Amino acid sequence: MKITANHISIEVEDSGGETRPVVLLIMGLGMQLIDWPDEMVSLLVAAGFRVIRYDNRDAGLSQRFDHIRQGSLFWQKIRFCLGLPVRAVYSIQDMTDDALGVLDALNIPHAHIIGASMGGMIAQRFAATYPERSTSLVSIMSSSGASYLPRPQPEIIAALLSKPDGMSEDELIAHQLKIMAIVVSPAELLDLDRDKWLRHLRMALRRGGYHPNGSLRQILAIMTDSCRADLLVQIRCPTLVVHGEDDPLMPIACGEDTARRIAGSEFLPIPKMGHSFPPQFMQAMHEKIIPFLHGIGGVHRIEK
């Protein structure tokens, strides 16, 4: 369904029932609400939660910002490397305000905030800037954004910024499969159900289309989010930081740094998990994440 949140049009999926405690799921760069695994949503609903998913601005069926002129990513990257201000159409804080607008539009006073990758960055800002609306925070395969943290290898960045060989549906899907093969764990790649991923990628492409300019604007928003690391000390809600040990896009040091910066946070490393949701993550949903949401701890605590 379409709602108006933060003065823009946002596509929302609402599952579970209005009387339940709410989990707000915030997806990552260029991804859609349907990219949250169905199994994860079903587990949360079965555990007694109302699950709210939405498409970020410039993704899926939510409002796009093609009407606003944007600078060259190449030149903005140069400015970023030189420590100069990066010009973005909108900020991660704007996207955080979108999340707040979703809760406001649905008359939800507070929620468990769960974000993955860029969605984890948005979720971190949400918990820091709207503590009264944050029941808890779960940051998955994300980063504090601290400048000293390890970055992806150049070949991974090159693949993410590469263009497909053509614009046919099959060529676009092949391009997405190539990117996916780079960011998942090598262990997951061996067991990858190619047909399942092909079906999902085809569905996602037909739903949201191919929209690289939206992803570029989101990348610029991430690049301008330079002060979030210092903001994390303001987070006071119960926090669980989840990260794959084999993540090539966001090395595990990024998750460890996030956990260290948030007082009382807990850190959950997941073996054989890359920048994806493998079976090991679903096992963690059963054993750790849902119990955490229910108020049960029991995961490794990072030394502060």
Rank of each mutant, 00 (worst) to 15 (best):
A159M: 13
Q280I: 02
T129P: 02
M180Y: 08
R207S: 09
G101L: 06
P150G: 05
G208K: 06
L25T: 02
T135H: 08
Q218V: 00
L220W: 00
R133Q: 10
G244N: 07
I252R: 01
I3A: 03
I52H: 02
I113V: 07
G115M: 06
I3H: 07
R50S: 03
I156K: 01
P21Y: 01
N56I: 08
I270P: 00
P164V: 02
M203G: 08
Y90K: 02
M282V: 11
W36H: 10
S215Y: 05
G115V: 11
K77V: 07
A5T: 08
E188V: 05
G30M: 02
A284K: 05
L231A: 14
H275A: 09
D230A: 12
T96F: 07
W36N: 03
E287I: 06
Q283D: 13
L189V: 05
V299C: 13
A159C: 06
D193M: 07
S143E: 06
I78Y: 10
P291K: 08
M40A: 14
R20P: 03
G297Y: 11
K288V: 03
L149D: 05
Y130D: 04
L192T: 07
L24V: 04
V51Y: 06
P271D: 12
G71V: 06
A229T: 01
M223A: 05
L24N: 05
I302C: 04
G17L: 10
Q283N: 08
P21E: 14
L216R: 09
F80I: 02
